[in-house]
Simulated assay, not measured.
Amino acid sequence: MDYLYHYYEKAIGPFRNLSDLPADEAAEVLDSIKHNKDVMAGRRAAGYMKRRYELEQLARAMFIAKGGQPVRKVPHYMVVGECEWLNSWYEEGAAVKIHISSFNTDTLSFSYGDLFPTFSPKVDDGKEYRGNIYTYKEMVQLIHKYGLPQVWNKEGTKGPERYIEVQVWDDEPLQISRIKGEK
Rank of each mutant, 00 (worst) to 15 (best):
124 D>F: 06
129 Y>Q: 03
59 A>K: 02
129 Y>L: 06
45 A>G: 01
27 A>T: 00
141 Q>V: 01
83 C>D: 10
150 Q>L: 05
49 M>N: 08
28 E>R: 12
65 A>R: 12
156 G>F: 12
38 D>S: 11
131 G>H: 11
16 R>C: 12
177 S>F: 02
141 Q>A: 14
75 P>Q: 05
11 A>Q: 14
52 R>P: 02
68 G>D: 05
86 L>K: 02
167 Q>V: 09
33 I>L: 15
109 S>M: 04
2 D>E: 15
1 M>E: 11
131 G>K: 12
89 W>R: 01
84 E>H: 03
183 K>I: 01
30 L>S: 08
111 S>E: 08
83 C>K: 03
137 K>D: 09
48 Y>F: 14
107 T>G: 00
16 R>M: 11
110 F>P: 06
112 Y>L: 11
136 Y>A: 03
123 V>Y: 10
153 N>W: 12
79 V>F: 00
116 F>M: 14
101 S>Y: 03
65 A>P: 15
112 Y>Q: 04
125 D>E: 13
125 D>W: 11
18 L>Q: 03
132 N>G: 07
21 L>I: 00
141 Q>R: 13
23 A>C: 05
70 P>V: 02
126 G>S: 10
56 E>R: 00
74 V>D: 07
85 W>E: 07
42 G>N: 08
43 R>S: 05
53 Y>F: 12
143 I>R: 01
153 N>E: 13
175 Q>H: 09
34 K>L: 13
59 A>C: 15
142 L>N: 02
114 D>P: 06
105 T>K: 05
41 A>G: 02
93 G>R: 06
70 P>K: 15
129 Y>E: 06
11 A>H: 14
169 W>A: 00
85 W>H: 03
113 G>V: 02
19 S>K: 02
3 Y>K: 00
159 G>F: 05
4 L>G: 02
58 L>T: 15
138 E>T: 04
64 I>A: 04
97 K>A: 07
106 D>Y: 04
65 A>Q: 14
93 G>Y: 04
114 D>M: 08
109 S>Q: 05
27 A>F: 14
72 R>C: 07
6 H>I: 10
145 K>I: 00
169 W>P: 00
134 Y>G: 06
130 R>S: 08
130 R>E: 09
56 E>A: 03
145 K>H: 12
183 K>R: 14
11 A>T: 14
55 L>M: 11
41 A>K: 03
47 G>P: 09
171 D>F: 01
23 A>Y: 12
7 Y>F: 15
9 E>G: 09
49 M>R: 00
157 T>L: 15
5 Y>G: 07
